[in-house]
Design a protein around this nucleic acid. Structure first.
Length: 198
DNA sequence: TGACCGATGAAT
DNA sequence: TTCATCGGTCAT
């Protein structure tokens, strides 16, 4: 399997969000590999998107990584407890990103079970905080470039348009006009998606 | 320095 | 549906 090329990430954020579905996320530890196929994403459209951390050009220590060129990781802490992994898109002039909301576990299931105390494999990585916990993604990975050191994104499957569901994003009710923008994408009928309404 | 709040998850 | 929990943000 081939790594995604740098030019994959600098395209429009919506396109990258849709095309990340079916790709494989890998975190290589000392002597173990944790990986999963991406099944759910959300696009965050920068300065004009009230749900986005960089809305109106906000630049703080936390959001610094979103101002890196496409292909970097943006990891932040939410609710004082959980990490969320994003893939930065476009260029320095456009601080946008794609939130990885769920993956389907491939390698390292036993380690993932150790990292998260759940019975079923389907509960391991079906949410943005859960997949970071399972795959040991923390602030350490913030600002890292994909396909350089130990975080990778590989090509693998192309998901046909008819298998992609589009709907509003989760947990952004405060975002006024942006709250209903259909920027959440997931693979239809996939049981590893975080919430299966509709 | 301090008040407020959240791109969640788990229990109920 | 409810709520724990604490770092990040922003106004003092």
């Amino acid at each position: 399997m081939k790594s995604l090329s740098p030019s994959f990430f600098t395209r429009s954020t919506k396109v990258v969000a849709q095309e990340l579905l079916g790709k494989v996320l890998i975190h290589k530890m000392n002597n173990q590999t944790l990986s999963g196929r991406i099944v759910e994403t959300e696009a965050y459209l920068g300065v004009k998107d009230k749900a986005c951390h960089t809305f109106a050009g906000r630049k703080t220590p936390r959001t610094e990584a979103m101002y890196l060129p496409g292909g970097h990781a943006y990891v932040y802490l939410i609710y004082g407890k959980y990490y969320c992994l994003n893939v930065v898109t476009r260029t320095e002039a456009h601080p946008e990103a794609v939130l990885i909301r769920a993956v389907e576990p491939i390698d390292g299931l036993s380690l993932m079970h150790k990292n998260r105390k759940v019975q079923k494999a389907k509960d391991l990585t079906n949410g943005p905080g859960k997949l970071c916990q399972a795959m040991q993604i923390t602030k350490q990975q913030n600002g890292m470039l994909f396909n350089q050191a130990n975080l990778f994104l590989l090509e693998d499957q192309k998901i046909p348009k008819k298998s992609i569901v589009e709907c509003p994003r989760i947990g952004v009710d405060y975002a006024e006009e942006a709250k209903n923008w259909p920027l959440r994408y997931y693979i239809k009928n996939n049981i590893f998606v975080s919430k299966l309404y509709k």
